[in-house]
C-alpha cells in the first residue's frame, strides 16, 4: 500500500511539474493529478502543521484549559457553597420554628397561669363577698330575732299585766279580798302553758 502510494505520488508529482511548466508557458491552469499526492508540498505542509500545532497546543494546554477548568471548579465550588448555605438556612429556619413553637407554648402556659390566678382571685373576692353578705344577713337575722323576742316579751308582760289586773278585778268583784301574791302565782302558772 505504501509503495503504491509513493508510486502514485511520484506520477502525481511529475504531472504537477509538467503543469507548472505549462503554466509558465502561459497556458490555462488546470490541475492534473491529485494535489493531495503532490509529494513536493508535503514538507511544506508538515513543517507549517508542526509550527501551528505547537502554537495551538501551547494556547490550549497552557492558557485555555486551565482557565476553563478554574472557571468550572469555581462554579462547582459556588454551587456547593450555595447549597451548603441553603442547608444552613434551612437548619436556622427549623431552629427558629422550634423557638417560635416553644415561645407559643410558653405564652399559652403563661396565659393559662394568669387565667388561673385571676380566677382564684375572683373566687377569693367572691368568697369574701359571699361571706360578708352571709355575715350581714346573719347579723340582721339576729337583730330581727332579738326585736321579735323583745316584742314578744313585752307582749307577754303586757298580757300578764292585763291578766293580773283582770283577775284582781274579778276577785274584787266577787267580793273577795285580793291577795296580790296568790293572784300573780295563779296567773303565771296558767300562762305558762299558753304563751310558750
Amino acid at each position: 500500500m505504501i509503495s503504491l502510494l509513493q508510486e502514485a505520488a511520484h506520477t502525481a508529482a511529475e504531472h504537477t511539474e509538467s503543469v507548472a511548466s505549462s503554466v509558465a508557458h502561459g497556458e490555462t491552469e488546470t490541475a492534473t493529478g491529485l494535489p493531495q499526492l503532490d509529494l513536493t508540498s508535503f514538507g511544506n505542509q508538515i513543517f507549517w502543521l508542526v509550527v501551528a500545532m505547537v502554537v495551538l497546543y501551547w494556547i490550549v494546554a497552557k492558557v485555555a484549559l486551565p482557565r476553563i477548568g478554574a472557571v468550572l471548579s469555581d462554579r462547582q465550588g459556588a454551587i456547593t457553597g450555595d447549597l451548603m448555605a441553603a442547608e444552613e438556612f434551612k437548619l436556622k429556619a427549623r431552629e427558629a420554628e422550634a423557638a417560635y413553637d416553644k415561645a407559643l407554648a410558653d405564652a399559652r402556659a403563661e396565659a393559662g397561669k394568669i387565667v388561673a390566678a385571676n380566677r382564684a382571685e375572683i373566687q377569693k373576692e367572691l368568697d369574701a363577698a359571699i361571706a360578708h353578705a352571709d355575715a350581714e344577713i346573719a347579723a340582721r337575722a339576729t337583730e330581727s330575732e332579738r326585736r321579735i323576742r323583745e316584742i314578744r316579751d313585752s307582749a307577754d308582760n303586757d298580757a300578764r299585766e292585763v291578766a293580773r289586773d283582770v283577775t284582781a278585778e274579778l276577785v274584787r268583784a266577787f267580793g273577795g279580798v285580793v291577795d296580790q301574791a296568790a293572784v300573780d302565782q295563779a296567773v303565771d302558772s296558767r300562762m305558762k302553758g299558753t304563751l310558750q
Partner: peptide, 17 residues
C-alpha cells in the same frame, strides 16, 4: 513551494489557531 514557503496551508493553519 519550498518547505519554508508561506502557502495557503500556512494561512489556514493559523486561521485555525
Amino acid at each position: 513551494v519550498h518547505w519554508y514557503t508561506p502557502t495557503n496551508v500556512t494561512l489556514w493553519l493559523f486561521a485555525i489557531v
